[in-house]
Structures are given as C-alpha cells and as structure tokens.
C-alpha cells in the first residue's frame, strides 16, 4: 500500500486541527450537553453486545434494550446502595484517623526523620508540613464544592439514563440516518471507518473497565491477605485509578501504606504492601491486560504521561483520571480514520 501524499497528510492534519478547535469551542459552549451524550454513548457501547446476544436468541431489540437497561442501572444502583455506604464509612473512618492534625503529626515525624538524615549529610532543613497541610485542606474544601451540585447531578444522571436507552434501542437506525447524509463519493469509506471505530472503541472501553475491575478485586484480596485495615477502600481506589495506566497500583500502595501506618502505628506492613502491588502490576501487565485490552489500542508511556499532565492541568483530579481513556478513545478514532483514508484514497 502506497503512503499518502504530503498534501493529503497536511490536509488531514489541518482537518484535525479544525476539528479540535470546533470540539474545544463546543465543549466550552455546550460542554454538559455534549458530555451527557458522550457518557450515554460509552454506556451504550458497553451494553450493545449484550443486547445483540439477546437478539441472537430471539429477544426483540426493544425488549433486549429494556432488559439490559434495567439490569445495568439496577446493578449500578445496587452497588451504589450497598458498596458505597461501606466505602463511605471506611473513608470517614480513615478521614478521622488521617485528620489534618493527625496527618500533621505523621508528616512532622517523617520531616524530623528526614531532617535528621539531611543534617548528617550537612544539607538545609526540609519544611514539608505547612505545604502538605494546605494541599489537604484545599482537597477537603473541593469535596464540599462537589457535594453542593447534587440537584444538578440528579438531572444529569436522568438525562444520561434517558439518552442511553434511546441509543441502545435506536442506535443502528440513528447511525443509518447519519450515514445516509454522507455524499456518494465518501459513503463506503465512511461506513468502513465507522464500523472499525465502533469495534475498536467498544473493545477498548470494555477492556479498560474489565482490567480496572480485575485489578480492584485482586488489590482488595491482597490487602485483606496482608491485613491492611480498610482493605475495601484500598481495592476500590486501586481499581478506579487503574483506569489510568500505571496509576492504579502506586495509588493503591500509597493509600494502603498511609492507612496502615496511621491505623496500626507501625511501618511493618509497608514492604509487604509494596511487594503486593509490584506483583499486582506484573500480573496486570503480563496476564490481565493481554486478555482484556487489545495490543493495537495500548498507548505509549510518553503519551500516557502527557495525557495525565494535560488532564490535570485543564480539569483537575477528574481530568487526570479520565484523560487517558479519553486519549485512548481519540487514538482509536484517529488511527482508524487514518487507515480508512489510506485504504479508500482516490486513485
């Protein structure tokens, strides 16, 4: 297959810059509406194969969509009502243990140890406590700010639920109508690209979620085995942060060490925790990821680091969490689009 000409490459590059600018503008103008649609699209991507399976055994699409819809949101609600209170209670317990005062004591203890070492080396004194205290206070006030948007969240969730159902039920019809608007010259190309994007995107999203779930489960089990208090909270955090490659195990390890040091008042569990998370990382790399995430959609470590930094810069902690999956989605779309253009370029 011949390479694309330089002019075509420049045109594609300009087209994508234009799309990025338009996307950025739309995000600013109608960000929440677009995000409702995107979240609904992701959920419908995840549920579509199950609806297809039901259709295969003779269940009509409408009924299949209703069944999967009820099952999914029922499961999410059940998790919300059963697991969330447990995690919340654990978080509150940890918060009491790691109150700003207790944390200050712990940090001051670490600070004193480090300063003693620095003095031996003849270096200047290290002042960590005031800085970290500010960081934790800011994080706490941030949490309160998020909680104040409950009403908005309810409306948001309702809209997502509504959009998900219709995307599940009528997704194919909507797609067909959109494709019918494409000019004849680009019709087959568009159809092929959309199909490949759909396939890769569905596989990628299901892969990273399954991977995060398995890592969360294994972390919970490992922490229970080691005897770390609040092991469910640690497992939950490790699983959630595993949506960002490389971040799950270190976050889990850090949280587990803080909890075990503050609760048990000893550092003796630190080594087993670090070893457990190194083992988990290896299991994730060599066993879980090869089975859950297709190699073609995995990203280069540099891209991951850049995505995390950019996500954090623009959207804070949540931005860091979702930047990598978002870049993954964009990566899948871009590569399928590029290969599609290559296959269908005019001769």
């Amino acid at each position: 297959m011949n390479e694309l000409s330089l002019t075509t490459k420049i045109l594609i590059f300009i087209l994508f810059l234009l799309l990025l600018v338009i996307g950025w503008y739309l995000l600013n103008v109608a960000g929440s509406i677009i995000s409702i649609f995107l979240v609904a699209l992701v959920i419908s991507f995840l549920l579509a194969p199950s609806v297809d399976t039901l259709e295969r055994i003779g269940v009509p699409r409408l009924l299949g969509s209703i069944v999967m819809f009820i099952l999914f949101f029922g499961l999410v609600s059940a998790i919300f009502y059963t697991v969330t209170p447990v995690i919340y209670e654990e978080a509150i317990r940890v918060q009491h243990k790691i109150s700003v005062g207790a944390l200050r004591d712990a940090i001051q203890q670490v600070e004193a140890n480090v300063n003693e070492q620095l003095r031996i080396l003849g270096a200047v004194e290290w002042k960590l406590a005031p800085y970290l205290e500010n960081v934790f206070s800011a994080a706490l006030s941030n949490i309160l700010g998020v909680a104040s948007g409950v009403v908005y969240s309810v409306i948001y969730v309702f809209m997502v639920v509504f959009a998900t159902f219709f995307l599940l039920k009528d997704g194919r019809r909507i797609k067909k109508s959109l494709i019918s608007a494409v000019p004849n010259r680009f019709f087959e190309m568009t159809l092929s690209i959309i199909h490949k994007i759909e396939w890769s995107l569905g596989a990628y999203l299901r892969g990273i979620l399954l991977d995060a779930f398995v890592v969360g489960l294994l972390s919970t089990f490992a922490m229970w085995l080691i005897g770390v208090p609040n092991f469910m909270l640690v497992g939950f955090a490790a699983g959630m942060f595993n949506l960002v490659p490389y971040l799950g195990p270190p976050t889990g390890a850090l949280l587990a060490i803080i909890i075990s040091v503050v609760s048990l008042g000893t550092w003796e569990k630190t080594i087993p925790i670090i070893l457990a998370f190194i083992a988990l990382r290896l299991i994730d790399d060599f066993l879980v990821q090869p089975m859950t995430i297709s190699k073609s959609v995995r990203m280069h470590p540099l891209v991951v680091i850049f995505a995390i930094l950019a996500g954090g810069q623009f959207f804070g902690i949540l931005g860091m969490l979702f930047a990598v999956p978002a870049v993954g989605v964009f990566n899948v779309i871009l590569s399928e689009f590029y290969h599609g253009i290559q296959r269908y370029r005019p001769i």
Binding site: N184, R185, E188, L191, S192, R343, Y344, P346, I347
Partner: peptide, 16 residues
C-alpha cells in the same frame, strides 16, 4: 446516483 456518477472505481477498496 445521477447519470454518469460513479458508484465505485477500479482499484478502490470494496466494502460490499
């Protein structure tokens, strides 16, 4: 398709 319009051309990747 209008009269004279190509549905596909020789050498293009076919999809169906």
């Amino acid at each position: 398709y209008r009269r004279g319009e190509y549905i596909f051309r020789e050498g293009e990747t076919g999809l169906g």
